[in-house]
Design a protein around this nucleic acid. Structure first.
Lengths: 309, 309
DNA sequence: CATTGCTTGACAATACTTAGACATGGAGTT
DNA sequence: AACTCCATGTCTAAGTATTGTCAAGCAATG
């Protein structure tokens, strides 16, 4: 956005109030008392705020809410306000710390083989943080930790199985909450291809997409290609997402993916995620699929797809 | 579509009004006052709008509806209007919009007396946004709307009862998720005093506190003072929170609150919330209780208590 | 001829502006 | 504890600006 655009006077008081979460009263009071901003005026004398004004007021409100007094804040230039807001975020809370607490509580419970407690911790985390944050900061971290503990030998197969069962239950529960999401969303099929028995990645992706408003059909793990194809065609999907964790990408899998890719409607996108997919990125490119390296990537890609409609 | 086609004058006022969602009156007023468009004229002098005109008017209406003032918009070229319309979706920012969507979906469901759908919407909102945001932006707004609709007569008693049942179920579900929160949190008792049969405020407070990590004992509505006292003492609470919505604060209630306040351990704080509590702030101050006006207030107060330990 | 549209002028409802007053709650002081 | 002072959010009142709506009288359309 060019500077001339950002500093062009545009927004009325009412609009500015909406954008900043302040009230017109407060906007005028702050201006009168502290000159926090000096909006331009219309021909008739009404205030016209620029984008920069709005940005500044947003920051001021945030800092004011957290206890700084507005009289002092008023004199501070925009750049410094931005820095303060960033610092505030790190210092004060909150989300980061809490997410970490949940992760370690989950790992503890898994270590103690306390499935009920693990489930409670995960449900609490999901509900407290909201699904997107839960997936990003708790679920994926916990899975990584458990996987790592398993490969290092500090966690046994029993631990891994317990975690598997509980995670599947919790993610399934969330997915079911989004169940009848209605007609609004674009459609997506999620599964893992044949011999891929690790379904976590797929579950995470399914839940992430559902939380973004997609109408997700989760087909589960180890699914024959023809099944995936016929489901996708029958439902009329905008995309198919597969998770590939293990075993490594071999000739059979490549052939399967080729079949799938060429069998899909051209408007439907094929997306591949998971550790093995990232590792074999180059070879997989031949299938015409998009490789996503993280949940964030996946979300971004979904977004782009949705815009394109 | 070729330019000559798009800019060819074609549509009558009536048609243009239908296409843009404006009225012929407004079309003429906007043209007379701001020259928002300058349609061609027929031989007899009647307006003939082109496709481009219609497109421009559509955008203008959209932006005008969202609070921009038409006098300012009128001078902006088409391309910039398009950009603004796109930005508008982003500017009215992510979380807020999603929360708003959930609120209106909830209100819709309540209007249709579709309890199952209402429950699904609320659960989805809670899980998507996380409990704190859900309480602040969906639950309290929906309750306010429903209460308002009821007092205005646009919603019947049946609507109100349905909403009551569903909200109680959903909030109860969340509360139960936090159930065995363990040893970490300070303890809090939440209830409504005798004759206070509206338990929403209390439920909201209970859930908010639980999400903040408190060990909450929710005792429900219409509870005799001795019961509250003995529970509080037995559990060893840091605070007691009561919701007072209706009826108004009278002598009996004042006496009850005095009894409660003096019976509590001095280290335990008594907190009063709800519409009636805010209204009777002055008289209630005599009880030594803290009056909280909003969920945010309540959270802040809990925070202070927790720090002080 | 009935319907629709044109122009001009007026009116009313919002929304905005300024100046000032008031209430509250925290910080200091006595 | 009682007191004042100050910072700040909220409200009022009276005037102005903006904008939607309407009416009257005439013209065009079909």
């Amino acid at each position: 956005m060019s500077t001339s655009t950002a500093s062009a006077p545009r927004h009325s008081v009412r609009l500015t109030a909406l954008r900043t979460g302040l009230t017109p009263h407060i906007l005028r009071a702050w201006e009168r008392r502290y000159q926090v901003v000096t909006p331009a005026r219309s021909d008739g004398g009404q205030r016209l705020y620029s984008d920069l004004d709005v940005e500044r007021l947003r920051l001021l409100r945030g800092l004011s809410d957290r206890g700084h007094n507005i009289g002092t804040l008023a004199k501070i230039p925009l750049a410094d306000l931005e820095r303060m807001a960033r610092e505030e975020e790190v210092a004060s809370d909150g989300a980061g710390v809490r997410a970490h607490d949940f992760s370690s509580a989950a790992l503890d419970a898994a270590r103690r083989l306390d499935g009920a407690e693990l489930q409670r911790v995960l449900e609490r985390a999901a509900v407290t943080l909201g699904v997107p944050a839960f997936l990003d900061e708790v679920a994926s971290a916990a899975l990584r930790n458990i996987g790592q503990g398993w490969s290092e030998g500090t966690l046994s197969v029993a631990h891994e199985h317990l975690a598997t069962v509980v995670f599947r239950r919790v993610l399934g529960w969330i997915l079911q909450l989004y169940g009848a999401n209605g007609v609004g969303g674009s459609r997506l099929v999620v599964a893992t291809p044949p011999r891929q028995t690790h379904e976590f990645g797929a579950l995470l992706a399914a839940v992430a997409a559902a939380a973004e408003g997609w109408d997700v059909r989760y087909l589960g793990a180890d699914l024959p290609i023809p099944e995936i194809l016929s489901s996708a065609r029958q439902i009329g999907v905008s995309a198919v997402a597969l998770s590939i964790v293990y075993p490594e990408v071999d000739a059979t899998l490549m052939a399967d993916l080729q079949t799938l890719s060429s069998g899909l409607d051209p408007s439907a996108k094929l997306m591949l995620g998971g550790a093995a997919a990232s590792a074999a990125r180059e070879r997989l490119n031949a299938t015409g699929a998009e490789i996503v390296d993280s949940l964030g990537d996946f979300r971004a890609s979904l977004h782009r797809l949705q815009q394109r409609i």
